[in-house]
């Protein structure tokens, strides 16, 4: 799981598919958006990857984290006031928009320090490499790496706080 970026990305895409199915089967009615849990789980898997023992199967570890994140999300959302579904009848009839699926991470991204936000946006949305980002933002490569790592940690923290 260490080192090779493209192999890691392939692994994370596979994890995302599994966790998406896992969450959709368990989120029966609204309040918690499955894609928020997928993203939260991916960040946790990345930032807590040292808690996986190398001699153990990886998927039970992935599902243990996904289950924890799902329960935690239900618990957090549970604090909010329930509203009558009739209020949203019209909205619910609308087809699900792509933008509404990822509201949590965009809010988290918006709360980052400017440098971290620029670095994360450059690498994720624009798909730039570390080197390209460093060149575009006038930073050293190691500064970009640090900003990226801190940015991801800050996003994960904001997921838990909201």
């Amino acid at each position: 799981m260490a080192g090779d970026e493209s192999a890691y990305a392939v692994f994370l895409e596979r994890v995302a598919r599994h966790v998406r199915g896992f969450c959709r089967r368990r989120i029966v009615h609204g309040g918690v958006e499955p894609e928020d849990i997928v993203q939260e789980t991916l960040l946790a898997i990345h930032l807590k990857r040292h808690t996986w023992r190398q001699d153990e199967a990886v998927m039970p570890w992935v599902y243990a984290i996904a289950r924890f994140k799902l329960i935690d999300a239900f618990r957090r959302r549970g604090r909010h006031v329930e509203v009558d579904i009739d209020d949203f009848a019209e909205t619910l009839a609308e087809p699900e928009k792509e933008a509404s699926m990822t509201r949590d991470i965009d809010r988290a991204l918006g709360g980052l320090a400017t440098v971290q936000r620029n670095v994360v946006a450059s690498i994720s949305v624009e798909g730039a490499t570390i080197g390209e980002t460093a060149h575009a933002l006038g930073m050293t490569e190691s500064a970009v790496r640090v900003a990226l790592h801190r940015g991801l940690k800050a996003i994960a923290r904001r997921f838990v706080q909201d």
């Binding site: 994370l12 993203q39 960040l43 990345h46 990822t102 994720s124 949305v125 570390i130 990226l148 790592h149």
Partner: peptide
Amino acid sequence: MNTHDLIKAIARD
């Protein structure tokens, strides 16, 4: 940011 973009950022880290 969609999940695919997030994975790109994570993989670079």
